[in-house]
Write a protein that binds this DNA or RNA. Structure first.
Lengths: 302, 302
DNA sequence: AGAACATGATGCGCGGACGGTATCAGGCCA
DNA sequence: TGGCCTGATACCGTCCGCGCATCATGTTCT
């Protein structure tokens, strides 16, 4: 195989059509350059120059090889720079895991901030439930997740990015909609309930259980996704506790009523990332995302 | 600048994720391979592998650099092969000069033959008059011309590829069209004549002068292109001597009448090429074009 | 015609780079 | 704690490629 030095020598001679001048341009003397070209021709298996005692001319094969050599050198020139920019994090890819409904209103903020600050960083989105997110983070299949507590702080870094109200989703026309004050837990006695899965939606499950005693005969369905839950409410199967931003789903036939809770905004969403991430773009993205205000109102909500 | 050996070493380690196995694959021992990678990393300015005492993993920069390295090696692999095929003539470009009208019916045969036999040889066409063709051949701006004698045999190789009749072009309805025998030179006494340029269309000029005494008061126009000549005939300015294939031009209002000449087919067209051509595809094309029969009837003529 | 000049190619000697052998340093496992 | 795995380092010999000097040959100027 030929070397880059040989290619550079070849290109110089091809451009100067003169061994002496080409050698000078390469800061070397003419004899080794001649030998370089000879060796290159031997290795390529083709005469690249027609040369006599008066000058040098490219053969047709040499003309074609010149194009290839130029491309090779350009690529070789650019490759380290690309690698350095990847390493610096200003270009690259960040893979973000998110749950379909629960991140409504935050994901767009995240995307806007990152693409504005790091335009050369590509963002890949992966829709998955929280448990899958955790596994994917550990397997380094994603770099960043939008997830809910609790997390193992030894494995993950995290930061609160959104804090919102828990509200009650009821079918349009339900008796509670006539209430002229926030719903209290006591108002819900005997109402059928669409409940969160204790395993797949652990966060909401714990939140609701801490709020009121879940009487099993009231639970008509157990699901894991906020969207599914809202559809069930719309079809009149029962009520559900959902984050306020669920109204952004825009599902017809559902009304979201304010709810009195101990904490005014008990539903938290966090950024989550593996502490041992090797993605150089991640720290830059996290720095950028400091601008997120957990108490901001998602766009589309009043 | 890094070397191809370093790139190969890098790719091997990136694929094996193990220095020892990679070294074995490269038929070398592990220590120099380690140093190769270290040196490569120094030259690129970026750590390409995360390595501890148990294994090796690509960094993000390393992943990106792997793509580039693979491309570089593939290109470097392919370049000599390309050059060799160019040198062998089975791929490449042949530039052909031709005159607009005079080569009607031959050029398509030439193109068909060459593209069939040498599908990877590209053909560039250059329309130019015979004198320009000769200059272009000498300057190596074209590789092959379709031209008419005479040529300097010291500079050019040539071969007869078409021999055809000289006919008389007359306007439709002209008195001669009622003749029920071939036209003879004597029939043309006093007829106005559209004549070939003595400089730019020397071949036809000499041919016509050898046929009949050109009386200058009969010459109404002097032009160099057969097409122009035929248009002038169509507009009734006079008669003209043109090769039989000129009828392929399909210009309305012109009739081509047989003419009695000393030679039955006095109009010759030759392939012409510079003896010092460096185009490896040219000999192959010429060999292919041996199949041309000078006495064949051009397609479209009966 | 002949000398001066220009071209690229070749002979030779030296220094540096690279590969191999032997060994080291650190983490996992029994 | 001692073997065993990983990649890194020390040292040495060889070979490759550079520069210097010179050659072979063709052009050009006097």
């Amino acid at each position: 195989m030929f070397s880059f030095e040989q290619l550079r020598g070849f290109v110089a001679v091809a451009e100067e059509l003169h061994f002496g001048r080409a050698a000078e341009r390469l800061s070397m003397t003419q004899p080794p350059l001649s030998r370089q070209i000879q060796k290159l021709e031997r290795e390529v298996g083709v005469r690249l120059f027609d040369r006599d005692n008066r000058g040098v001319a490219l053969t047709p094969a040499g003309t074609a090889f010149l194009r290839e050599a130029t491309r090779l050198l350009a690529l070789a020139e650019a490759a380290p720079d690309l690698a350095r920019r990847i390493a610096s994090g200003t270009v690259g890819t960040i893979r973000i895991g998110f749950t379909a409904a629960s991140t409504f209103g935050v994901l767009t903020d995240v995307l806007d901030l990152v693409t504005a600050a790091l335009p050369q960083v590509e963002i890949d989105l992966y829709e998955m439930v929280t448990r899958e997110q955790v596994e994917a983070l550990l397997a380094h299949e994603i770099d960043l997740a939008l997830a809910r507590p609790p997390f193992d702080p030894a494995l993950f870094g995290s930061r609160l990015i959104r804090r919102e109200e828990l509200v009650v989703a009821v079918p349009a026309g339900h008796a509670l909609t006539t209430l002229d004050r926030p719903v209290e837990v006591g108002d819900l006695a005997g109402e059928p309930l669409v409940m969160h899965s204790a395993t797949k939606a652990r966060y909401f499950y714990d939140l609701v259980v801490g709020l009121l005693p879940v009487e099993h005969h009231n639970v008509v369905h157990t699901v894991s996704q906020i969207a599914t839950m809202t559809w069930l409410v719309a079809s009149g199967r029962g009520l559900a506790f959902v984050p306020r931003s669920a109204s952004l789903l825009g599902i017809a036939g559902v009304v979201h009523l304010p709810l009195v809770t101990r904490e005014p905004k008990p539903v938290e969403l966090h950024l989550l990332w593996p502490r041992d991430s090797a993605n150089p773009a991640l720290p830059l993205a996290l720095e950028t995302l400091r601008a997120l205000d957990p108490d901001a109102t998602p766009r589309g909500l009043t």
